[in-house]
Amino acid sequence: MTDGAATMDNGSLTVLILEDEPMILWDLEQEFSDAGLHPITARSAEQALDLIGHTVPDVAVLDVNLGDGKTCEPVADRLSQLGVPFLIHSGDLDRAGEVVRRFDVPVMPKPTPAYLLAEAARALR
C-alpha cells in the first residue's frame, strides 16, 4: 500500500460517500461507521474531489444526480484514474445507466437499506 492510501491502522476501509440528500447522507455515515467502515462524506462533486485530494478512499459510494443537473461523473472519472473501486447508488436508473455504461460498475437502486449498501461497499475491495 502506498503512502496516499487511506486504510487506517485498525484496518477499516475508508469509504467516500457522495450524496446530496442530507438525511440519506447522515444515515449512510452512521450505518457505515456501525459496520466498521470509515466514512468520509461529500454533498457535491467539488467537495468530493477536494476530499480525494487529501485522502484517497479505498472505495466509494456515489449518488448520480447531485442537483442543478450536476452528476457524479467528474468524481467517477477521478476515482477511475486512481483505481479506486466504486458503486452507483441512484434512484434515476436511466441516467445512472449512462454512468454505469461508461465505467462498468455495480448499481444499487434507491431505495436500498443502508446496511446492504455498507455490505456492498465492503465487497468492492
Binding site: E21, W26, D27, L28, Q30, K110
Partner: peptide
C-alpha cells in the same frame, strides 16, 4: 425518480430514529 428518492429519505429517517 422523486418517489424513489423520497422513499430513500423516509428509510433514512426511520433508520436514524431507530438508531
Amino acid at each position: 425518480h422523486r418517489m424513489k428518492n423520497m422513499f430513500a429519505v423516509i428509510g433514512s429517517i426511520v433508520n436514524i430514529t431507530g438508531r
